[in-house]
């Protein structure tokens, strides 16, 4: 019951945002049209894929601030690979694996150097951004056109696909991650780690190895988000995606995750990502300036978490 409420509340928020803008724009048919829906979904892909990894990290009681920089780095890696004549699939894998390697380094810094996740990944934010600029020689990398460029387009070239391939990839991965978090030993250990690390350790769970695995797996998702970024811009840009980590964290938190760990869901994070995308899109359609969007999204983040805390404290009082 409580678990359903946790997903239903953000969902209700999403519906409210959509309805609000459908009315405000004065033409619900256009706002809710398939075309606009595709625009919104295509815009959501990068944050949504990042949120898959971030949900896992936040549920485990950690945080990753390096996402934006990793996206820039892996977009450059993918573009460079294509530029050097790699096949598109190999280039895609190169980007994803690069993200995974960054994740392993984050995990090792947290476990072996005993640096708290906030600081370890704050350091990585600078390192990854710097490496991205270095490997790209401080320029954008323009790869030859391949099907990778089609991944995150707004309107797919084949009509039967309905949405961009990237949207479908995100949906499939989200379903998989939801299952993994709920139904695998690994997934439950992630929750156990975030819920009570001492208990997890007392039960014989190797928490250090688990953390490295969590950050590595999340890194793969951030790498894929970087590939999507490359696809959207059709180039690798080392200065792109500044501050995206905050959007990703906001999506996860709006979806009901607790930064103190143990709570959160993939479904919630996906809804959170959509809430932000619809807010942006609606504001654009209203012709509101950029700063208004920023203020609105800021308010929504705080309100969403406040509502969640209020619900949690009421649940605690009932017991």
């Amino acid at each position: 019951m409580n678990r359903w409420l946790r997903v239903l509340a953000p969902l209700a928020g999403l519906v409210a945002v959509i309805l609000l803008f459908a009315i405000l724009t004065g033409s619900p048919a256009r706002y809710l049209s398939g075309a606009n829906l595709r625009v919104v979904l295509a815009q959501t892909v990068i944050v949504a894929i990042g949120a898959l990894g971030m949900t896992m990290i936040i549920v485990s009681g950690g945080i990753d601030l390096s996402v934006g920089a990793v996206i820039a780095l892996t977009s450059v890696v993918t573009a460079l690979a294509l530029h050097d004549g790699w096949t598109p699939i190999a280039a895609l894998l190169a980007g994803v694996v690069a993200g995974g390697i960054v994740g392993i380094i984050n995990g090792l810094a947290i476990t072996t150097l005993r640096v708290v996740p906030f600081i370890a990944t704050l350091g990585m934010l600078g390192i990854a951004r710097g490496v991205a600029k270095y490997v790209a020689s401080e320029q954008t990398v323009n790869p030859p056109a391949t099907w990778l460029n089609e991944l995150a387009v707004t309107f797919p070239s084949r009509d039967w696909m309905l949405f961009a391939p990237g949207v479908w990839i995100a949906i499939i991965l989200a379903a998989m991650m939801a299952l993994v978090l709920r139904n695998t030993v690994f997934g439950r250990h992630v929750f156990a780690l975030g819920s009570n690390e001492a208990a997890a350790r007392a039960c014989g769970i190797n928490t250090s190895a688990l953390k490295v695995r969590i950050y590595a797996l999340a890194g793969l998702f951030f790498g894929l988000a970087g590939v999507m970024q490359m696809s959207r811009l059709r180039q690798g840009d080392p200065t792109v995606a500044v501050g995206v980590e905050l959007d990703v964290i906001a999506a996860v938190v709006i979806g009901g995750a607790s930064l103190s760990g143990g709570e959160g869901s993939i479904a919630g994070a996906m809804i959170g990502a959509l809430v932000m995308a619809f807010l942006r899109n609606g504001s654009q359609q209203m012709g509101w300036p950029n700063y208004v969007q920023e203020i609105i999204i800021g308010v929504v983040i705080v309100l969403a978490v406040a509502a969640d805390r209020w619900r949690a404290s009421r649940a605690a009082e009932r017991n």
Binding site: V185, R188, F191, A192, G194, S195, N196, A198, A199, A200, A202, C203, G204, I205, G262, E263
Partner: peptide, 17 residues
Amino acid sequence: VLCAHLSVAENIAMGVE
């Protein structure tokens, strides 16, 4: 030392799932 967010069964089986 229990994980409050997890179910009774998950806590009982923790580490030997």
